[in-house]
């Protein structure tokens, strides 16, 4: 195995573990679409950062600006969802409003930015579909750091998180609601930004949802579910990457999602065949 393939596989393993583990929380909280909104919210920030880089000739600030603007726009989009919910809008209506606004702002910005040639069609395709095959050590290392930080935060907060996910009312009474919501918004945006290069925003939510769905009928505990989902996400992502590098020359991100989809189908059928009634996927 050559060096580049090894880096890609490590990157995919990291991405899969991160998406699988965090995705289990997202699924249990019923926030799959919120994560999708976060992914779409990133784009307007990315486009804005590219525009600023092109307009002011700040090519050396390309990556930091992309992170800062992507984080800011995604966090604002998620913040909007929580704000709208607080004003009495349903979860679905809040997500629809946020995603509509995110799309609208993105398209306006994109039209402006394309005017000075800062945003190529290839760049857009990469953003939408990911490009795991071109992962470099420079992109994989931050993902590893993010994974370690998120795992550490989960280890420290797992009891409070479980309380919050299972019974937000109780979490509010304990005085933890606002803190956890802020951590949640930050973590969602960071996970989305970290995983975008490998899977792209159209495949990201699949990567978050499918591992949790695969393991959900088989695991009874909260922490075991998060860990099993992380492991399944990592193993499937790496296996798909390995297949893509050798046996099946197909786009890696798509192969990850398709293989996870097959995994879910097998899990689903096995649950039915074995007569496990608890198909409570909570997704």
């Amino acid at each position: 195995m050559d060096y580049n393939t090894l880096i890609v596989l490590i990157g995919l393993l990291t991405t899969g573990v991160l998406l699988g583990g965090f995705g289990a929380l997202v699924c249990l909280k019923g926030e799959n679409l919120t994560a999708d909104v976060a992914a779409h919210g990133v784009v307007s920030g990315v486009v804005a950062s590219q525009g600023i880089v092109a307009l002011f000739g700040l090519a050396w600030l390309d990556v930091p600006l992309l992170w800062v603007f992507g984080f800011a726009s995604s966090a604002l989009t998620l913040g909007f969802i929580f704000w709208a919910r607080g004003r009495g809008y349903s979860a679905g209506a809040s997500q629809a409003l946020a995603i509509g606004l995110a799309y609208g702002v993105t398209l306006v910005l994109m039209s402006l930015v394309q005017g000075f040639g800062a945003f190529s069609t290839k760049g857009l395709t990469t953003l939408l579909l990911g490009d795991a095959a071109t992962l470099t050590i420079g992109r994989v290392m931050p993902a590893l750091v993010v994974l370690i930080i998120i795992a550490a935060v989960f280890a420290v907060l797992r009891r409070g998180l479980m309380n919050w996910v299972l019974d937000p009312q109780s979490s509010t009474l304990h005085g933890n609601q606002q803190t956890l919501e802020l951590i949640w918004i930050g973590a969602t945006v960071i996970v989305v930004l970290t995983c975008l290069p490998a899977l792209g925003l159209t495949l990201l939510v699949g990567g978050m949802t499918l591992p949790a769905l695969i393991v959900r009928p088989w695991v009874k505990g909260f922490v075991p579910l998060v860990m099993a989902s992380a492991i399944v996400g990592g193993v499937f992502a790496m296996a798909a990457g390995w297949l893509s590098a050798g046996v099946l020359p197909l786009p890696t991100g798509a192969l990850v999602i398709v293989s996870l989809g097959v995994g879910w189908l097998l899990s689903f059928m096995l649950v039915r065949c074995l007569g496990i009634i608890r198909l409570d996927h909570a997704a």
Binding site: L28, V156, R159, G160, K220, G221
Partner: peptide, 21 residues
Amino acid sequence: RFPSKVRDLVAMGRGVHLGLT
């Protein structure tokens, strides 16, 4: 349907004394 045992749910009641961490 949350994947948890009864004991863990009841233990959540102690959380108000323990804080988040």
